[in-house]
Design a protein around this nucleic acid. Sequence first.
RNA 1: GUCUCCUUCGUCUAGUGGUUAGGACAACGGGUUUUCAUCCCGUCAACGCCAGUUCAAUUCUGGCAGGAGAUGCCA
Length: 495
Amino acid sequence: MEVRVRYAPSPTGLQHIGGVRTALYNYFFAKASHGKFILRVEDTDRERYSDESLEDLYSTLSWLGIKWDEGPVVGGEFGPYIQSERYKIYQDYAKKLVDMGKAYYCYCTPERLEALREEQQRTKSEYQGYDRHCLNLSEEERAELEGKGIKPVIRLKVPTEGKTTVHDLLMGDITRKNRDISPDPILLKSDGFPTYHLANVIDDHLMGITHVMRAQEWIPTGPLHVILYEAFGWEPPIYCHLPMVMGKDGQKLSKRHGSTSVREFRNDGYLAEALINYVTLVGWSLDGSTEFFSKEELEKCFTLEGIHKSPGVFDYKKLEWFNGMYIRSKSDDELFSLVKPYLVDKGYIHSDPTEEEMRVLKLLIPPAKERMKTLKDIVELSSFVFEDRPPEDVEMYISKGADLKSSLEALERGSEILFSSLKRGEGSEDIENSLVKLAQELSLKVNGVFQPLRVAITNSKVSLPLFDSIEILGLDEAERRAKRSIEFMKEKENA
RNA sequence: GUCUCCUUCGUCUAGUGGUUAGGACAACGGGUUUUCAUCCCGUCAACGCCAGUUCAAUUCUGGCAGGAGAUGCCA
């Protein structure tokens, strides 16, 4: 039997890390078992739907490099794959259920239901859920209510006796007494759109889905779905409820923990490779020691057995580490194109870079690469080139164990050595030796000489190495900055 | 309240009826280094609790506790 799995998000917000991991697991499982990965858009909530969310879904999956075998845009023999376009199908099946006596019309107002719910919570009633008020309405009563213009919903008759079992690949059998299932959930809303329960069951059946891999938050409603399958006389798919992704505090990962949407991570300069690699590892492992997986590898080696039962905490630090590792694995050219939008956006370079800009970036990328955790870091690392912001704090020039006087002398004499040697075309190694010698002469640590020079030239205590910085900046500009800093320090000394 | 699921270092995890319980991130310390970073080395650190089975339990069974999720005309 060919494996057919689906990712079925609801376009009501940006693609969330948790959702994307579900997509990834489904996708990898499909690939690894030579099956089909189907995308289905569950846009039955017309209130929360947004076009932007749908666009975000497509752009996120394409950025991650996840292609669906069937679904919107690409089509397939079980379409349409957008639920709002399947409106009629759900209506027909819901009515069929009513005809079979397995569902019924309900005319209760949202107000009444709200009051009911409040009452149940207030009295801490053991019995929570709909009171089946409309279960046994006569034809006359129905006609009367409908005459008033009330649009009914269709509710499933949940059996009050017996129990229902969901077979879960991960969890084993999950059994629930039928009377513990929240009574008579709505299948078809008054606007004629189906709820998740109905649409999901019908589509998974009609689309020939073999394995349903979805978040564990669906476990409690699993038996309800099985009841629906039984009501239709269909065979339920194989279930596999995925552990959830949590925040540091153990609660469901959400906004207050930090970024949660792929779009944010993408904008912040995370690589798709890093995100895929890390996100997959929250809740799955191959052997406990292999850490790096490319998408292509996962398409081969992903196994259901490697999925864990317990929820996992999303560790931003570890993602960052992965990202840094992937950045360092890029060639300079690749990294250049990845980093370019950030520099253009900041106004540092033209979208069609000039020759000088290209020269600068060629020199900048190798030393910057070692220091980047995200692509965005390029802005900070290169700002000294594109924005000259001389330090206003003289302390910055003074390294540990030095003072203003010695630092000034180090800067003055260091610049002299540095620039005259550079102009003579001496190699950086020789110059470095001379500067080390100078430090000894001044009874300073080596950094006592290098720090004032670096600060003068890069405007920062934390910077790229001195010789790289000078080369990037150009000799003239570097010398200009050094002289300026000497003047600045002299002023301070005299003050 | 009721129902359901979960439980190995701070975090992601490996693993076994007898192991020095392994790896990675983080943290901390050290080395390389002109700062930062990279790189290298090291340290810290876990089987939730209580019973039972067993010669032996982190591993099997039961109970408890803790955590999470569900309980919507949201998915």
